[in-house]
Design a binder for these strands. Structure first.
Lengths: 350, 350
DNA sequence: ATAAGTTCGTAGTACGTTATACACTTCTTA
DNA sequence: TAAGAAGTGTATAACGTACTACGAACTTAT
């Protein structure tokens, strides 16, 4: 009985011995490096198969590539994040790369620790979804590992970015509502205390809303409710609107989940949507398409954004250094929560 | 200028030199092993902090623990999977372990490759969510790495499992419908060709349905539609039901997403839910709670299941070998898609 | 004072892989 | 035909950490 058979995992040394070549040769075959004849390649590959050899990533990571990238995400509950991740995964798979998803939890600290950890684990590159750090921090990070930032409007020379054109997306929404005849359009904003980063999607969207309102001559009608982009945040915003003497005819909730919240409040208050109030979301998550809900929203094609990010990352891993900042155009998906406003109790003119 | 300052990442050798001790001593401090004086410990830790040293997981993984576990999941779109993952993550975090999520994609082959890859990457343990393999394959796998299986009714001596009591869950649904006065209750089954595994949740649920029907003396009314647990599958099942001359008064869709499909079909066909048809889901995913939808369903508390799985895995990593197979009890969440049947067009008795 | 522990610290090697440097053939080309 | 060039394989030094053995210093028991 040979000593290989002793239940241990086969190493590249075992493969080389089995094939009767040097370990260096076996290694070359493994990473199909230059300088190996077809015969030798066949022989070594046969031995690998015979022994059931698989390279050990930990050992591999000490010298060269890991063939793995990671995406850091705060939270997997967000359906849109899942879409982005799936997009990255598909692209990674196409290029024989592994994608690992790293749920960091909320908070900048947790996120930073996770990123460090991934570097320590020898990831070849990292995608960050809507990261919290400052530009300077991202720059520094990008100098230690190939980096792509997803869902944040960046223009760095050290990393790539992919983002939806949130400004234009917000424009589409306002245009749609105005074309239906709305004038009093309320926007639900997402505010995080402390962070005040003009590059975050929420900041860009609110600017898009303001800009579009002004463009339509509705500067006086600008109305922004500070809340959170969550079910609860949407419900609170809805409640705030209901308590007004003079209600808007349409609400742009900023994101789909918040739109759910607004919708819930209206449902409970027996306010008819879209007759008494039009509601628009953002993201086009699956649930918005369900027949009983059918929310008008903005589609960002998360799958494409993810795939684009994956592609850029792997290019960067492959050696590209010129930065690419790409922006994908969102589209409006008109459904059943928007309609022309009913001009019932019109505000008296002075 | 010292040669440490040359932009390179500090290693344990740098730390040792900085502290004026041997690398072995530094290593001991790092893993707080036996045989290190308080002074030395303080000195080395100071050097680590000063140099910003972080151990390299890849190198570490070649010898001992990685302090990381992974969860393999086919698909992150499934909202319930996200809940499970979050549960595991929280438990892992509590115990200072890293959780990485590995989206395998669909198919048994892809899943197996992913698992091998994770082993190669030196994961300390693995959680599998509703794995596709046979019992024998899982046993084999469990012998090479600590393993916990989630969402599959197993009883192995080599790995742990956590599953909801799907049999009882199905019973709760039928009991609820029968107590409302329903007798003709249709079940939407999830069928995967090839796999016929009695331990899968779908198989257990259908047995629970059949058993409960018989227990209520409704054996003759048993009606199972073979479909898929997806939006489309639910829609198809709904269409099939609509085409019947003699329709059931209630549909148990097997899972929430399928219930959405049934609901969509009924909505489009202007069938009033729950008046003309009651619908029940399973999983209690967030969307079911939305006011305009409000589906009656069964809650499995995914967060708890995930946390339980995480706990078991880390125990196993820590050395436990006796298997634990735990089952969590689901609860019925009655909402607005179930009501007493309207006895309008009653089938004539012979 | 000496033997027998303890406690603290170090040398050195193993882990599995990559990759550089080099030697030996065989093919081109002037 | 000599001199390079291209092709093919090997020896071996890293990579950063863990850990076994072992020695030195310091206590304690006799």
């Amino acid at each position: 009985m040979s000593k290989d058979a002793a239940g241990k995992r086969p190493t590249i040394v075992d493969v080389a011995r089995h094939a009767g070549v040097s370990t260096a040769a076996a290694s070359k075959v493994l990473r199909n490096a230059y300088g190996v004849s077809p015969q030798m390649k066949a022989k070594v590959q046969a031995s690998m198969k015979a022994l059931g050899y698989r390279p050990l990533a930990s050992a591999r990571g000490m010298r060269g590539r890991t063939q793995a990238v990671a995406v850091v995400v705060a939270d997997l509950h967000n359906e849109f994040s899942s879409l982005l991740v799936e997009g990255i995964r598909q692209e990674a798979e196409r290029q024989k790369y592994r994608l690992l998803v790293a749920p960091a939890g909320s908070g900048k600290e947790a996120q930073n620790r996770m990123v460090e950890d991934l570097i320590d684990r020898g990831m070849d590159g990292i995608v960050l979804i809507s990261p919290l750090g400052t530009d300077a921090e991202l720059e520094t990070l990008a100098r230690s590992i190939p980096l792509v930032v997803l869902g944040r409007h960046a223009s760095s020379s050290d990393y790539d970015s992919v983002a939806a054109d949130d400004f234009n997306g917000a424009n589409l929404v306002v245009d749609h509502l105005v074309s239906l005849g709305h004038r009093r359009i309320t926007y639900v904003n997402h505010t995080t205390e402390g962070t005040n980063d003009a590059r975050l999607p929420e900041e860009v969207r609110v600017r898009g809303y303001v800009d579009a309102m002004i463009r339509h001559g509705l500067g006086d009608a600008i109305d922004i409710i500070q809340s959170q982009w969550s079910q609860e945040g949407g419900e609170q915003a809805g409640t705030a609107i209901l308590s007004r003497a003079d209600r808007p005819t349409a609400v742009f909730a900023g994101c789909d989940v918040a739109a759910f919240g607004v919708l819930t409040t209206m449902w409970n208050a027996r306010i008819s949507v879209p007759n008494e109030l039009s509601i628009v979301g953002f993201d086009n998550i699956f649930t918005t398409s369900l027949a009983p809900i059918s929310i008008t929203t903005v589609d960002q094609s998360g799958l494409d954004m993810g795939a684009a990010a994956g592609k850029l990352l792997l290019e960067r891993v492959g050696g590209r250094t010129e930065p690419v900042n790409s922006m994908v155009q969102p589209t409006l998906v008109a459904r059943n929560t928007t309609a022309a406003p009913v001009m019932a109790h019109r505000k008296r003119e002075p």
